[in-house]
């Protein structure tokens, strides 16, 4: 999957207040891996993505490549792109497997 696109059947929302709290917690070194900041609604069920997952999800517009997404993420967290590429690919593959992302 080179240019992942969010499944248009999924209704989603960034929980901005929650996201701001998580970013604040991250600054103080708290573990926020299990805290959802983006909600996905599908067939009456709600799923949550954590901060990093949510950031990747937001980038999946069918225009950006996996490298573009990894680049955005690397910039956001001031790390080398190579450090996040495999995580992005793995995450996208998982969501594609669930049918939440499709290939544009």
């Amino acid at each position: 999957m080179n240019k992942p696109l969010r499944n248009p059947e999924i209704v989603w929302r960034v929980e901005k207040r929650r996201q701001a709290e998580v970013l604040k917690a991250l600054e103080t070194g708290e573990d926020v891996a299990d805290t959802g900041t983006v909600i996905l609604l599908l067939s009456g069920m709600m799923h949550q993505l954590n901060l990093i997952g949510g950031m990747i999800w937001e980038q999946c517009d069918g225009q950006k490549t996996l490298a573009d997404i990894a680049g955005e993420l690397a910039k956001e967290f001031s790390v080398e792109q190579a450090e996040v590429e495999s995580d992005v690919a793995e995450f996208v593959a998982d969501l594609a497997e669930r049918g939440w992302l499709i290939n544009e």
């Binding site: 929980e15 901005k16 207040r17 929650r18 959802g36 909600i39 609604l41």
Partner: peptide
């Protein structure tokens, strides 16, 4: 309200 910043519906 910890989770939802607004209602869904």
């Amino acid at each position: 309200t910890e989770m939802f910043s607004a209602p869904l519906t």
